[in-house]
Design a protein around this nucleic acid. Structure first.
Lengths: 339, 339
DNA sequence: AATTAGCAGTCATCACTATTGAGTGCTAAC
DNA sequence: GTTAGCACTCAATAGTGATGACTGCTAATT
């Protein structure tokens, strides 16, 4: 199973050539272009071995060979292991941002545009998950005699709010007091924890249980917020740039997949803390993506919660370059959010 | 120039047939299928006239005829003028909404999904323009010794907020007072008007000008909010369903157009208060859309501001059905937002 | 034992051709 | 004014053969 140095060299040449040309590469091409002092016949034998080992595929019997997902995996792993992914300083990412953009959503949106333009692939971005957010401050603000606004400020500047009905006999002072208590009790907690705490509060304080229930219900609905906007997608048209995805059916399936954000979100969220996650073809676990790779990097918010940014493109992809771009954009994004 | 009843009848038949079949329709087809007691030769003569008048196009010299944009225009105008656009009660739109969705964005997003599924075209939605929103309530809430949250509640439940720095010597009461004054002075105004008013306030009151300036700056940035999310797009993949748009170049251009939201936004915003706006092919004014039609309807928010919802598809489109669906969805959307 | 040259065989691609059929315009007859 | 008939056009389709880039295999070479 262990590959000889020569096999690796040949495999590398095939990968390089195929990434550049996009057409199956034959033994003669390798023999001539990458002069390693071997005849095409020898290359042929080695290629035959490599195919048997699962690193090469042959679209049809008299065509050249194409790297398999396994080959790309080997290649990408060696890139990452050998620390070949540096910052690509030639990339001018700053120019995509204007200084007055503040909201997290907008910063991420811009980065996604940047990524799509820089790579010419479809860029994806996942906003930080709510499960990392913790509450900083809660304030109930009356807006009419019968309604109030509950504002929940999270660490990291994210803000949720809801209008709730209140009975008209609650005055501003009472609301202020309740706000103070809630901030004390719920500060530092995540949205997932507060339902229980509020339940306790209702039992122990035994006041305004109506109001607290309303608040509890409101906070429950925070989870619905921007569900549709959790995922940004830019450059879907770029999918049509690549002949291997160009069959109408494939392209349509991919576009439909992008519409149904849930599946993609799950995929992007599952990135076990790695700096990069590279999913090649079948590794994505989604049938429609069997000819695609998804490469993602994480960015970090000041409150340590993590979002994900990445691209989706054909498995034939200049992985080194893309990883460098992603590295650069991810770091820059983290920096921007730090301000 | 005025068309005989017979010409109109024949034109109608051609439009109907072409909308259904998608292939250029010939004289014999009309003569046989729509038995109006005329031979194909007569139809041929009439078709020749209709072509000269600009209602029909001929893809090539020996093919059948295809309705021109002008023909569709005539058809659509007659549909609308004769009040043929009813609610299509067979359309189950309610099932697309679950009851706990509250935020405007999410309701509209759902409606957009619904529209895309019902029509099998690409659905677009434009959120109501900020210029219609008016301020209901302003509240400044301290969140730490050096920062406060300014919350601006608009009529129609939209809420803006920003974190601003405050000097630590401003206490909660002062903030409350300022909030009250601001609400009094700015209530009922639109975001566009307040800069001047705040300027006046700074001059006349001559207190806390620092804070008021901060607030002014913050409110200025409201205009940046969700600029990227003003436009919803669902079902881009549906563009690939229609052979007339299927050339790779065309499809790519369309997808790129959808990415660059500004152009579409302008198009959708320009709908001069009509119940429906139908733009056929060249009428869109966008080159890439010369084979597409855009049909939009308005929906109304409780605060009377208007958003737009619509679809984009090939010029060959069952206009009657689509207009009915749009009518139904638009009305339903207005109802939902009313609650 | 590894490498290479040579050769037969496979297969996608492309250009070319012929065929088919839907559709037109025109003219003469009804 | 309407229709029948006919010559003509043209897109679409299928079939053909040539081309060229491959491979796998075998026998010769190093």
């Amino acid at each position: 199973m262990d590959l000889s140095a020569r096999k690796i060299q040949i495999l590398q040449a095939i990968i390089d050539d195929y990434i550049m040309s996009g057409v199956p590469v034959g033994s003669r091409t390798i023999s001539k272009k990458y002069n390693m002092g071997l005849s095409s016949a020898t290359i042929r034998n080695e290629m035959s071995d490599l195919e048997e080992l699962g690193f090469l595929d042959q679209p049809h019997i008299s065509s050249g060979r194409v790297p398999s997902a396994k080959a790309y995996r080997l290649y990408v792993d060696s890139l990452i292991k050998n620390g070949k992914i540096q910052n690509n300083n030639s990339i001018e990412i700053k120019k995509y941002f204007s200084s007055h953009i503040r909201r997290i959503e907008d910063v991420v949106q811009r980065a996604t545009y940047a990524l799509s333009e820089l790579t010419n692939y479809t860029a994806l971005a996942l906003l930080p998950s709510k499960s990392f957010e913790t509450i900083r401050n809660i304030q109930i603000v009356p807006i009419s005699s019968e309604s109030a606004l509950i504002v929940v400020v999270m660490y990291g500047e994210k803000i949720y709010n809801r209008v709730i009905k209140i009975s008209s006999n609650i005055d501003k002072n009472t609301l202020d007091n309740i706000s103070t208590v809630l901030t004390e009790r719920l500060g530092g907690k995540s949205l997932y924890e507060i339902s229980d705490i509020l339940g306790d509060l209702i039992n122990t304080l035994n006041i305004n249980s109506d109001l607290l229930n309303h608040i509890n219900e409101s906070i429950d609905t925070f989870f619905d917020d921007s569900q549709g906007n959790l995922l940004k997608t830019v450059g879907a048209g770029n999918l049509l740039n690549y002949p291997e995805l160009l069959s109408v059916d494939k392209a349509k399936n991919l576009l439909t997949l992008l519409d149904d954000q849930n599946e993609i979100i799950h995929l992007l969220q599952d990135n076990n803390e790695m700096e990069f996650t590279v999913r090649i073809g079948p590794e994505t676990g989604i049938d429609d993506l069997c000819d695609c790779s998804i490469i993602t990097a994480n960015y970090t918010m000041p409150n340590r919660s993590k979002g994900t940014i990445g691209i989706i493109g054909p498995t034939r992809m200049p992985y080194k370059r893309i990883l460098e771009i992603l590295n650069t954009v991810g770091k820059e994004l983290t920096n921007l959010l730090d301000e």
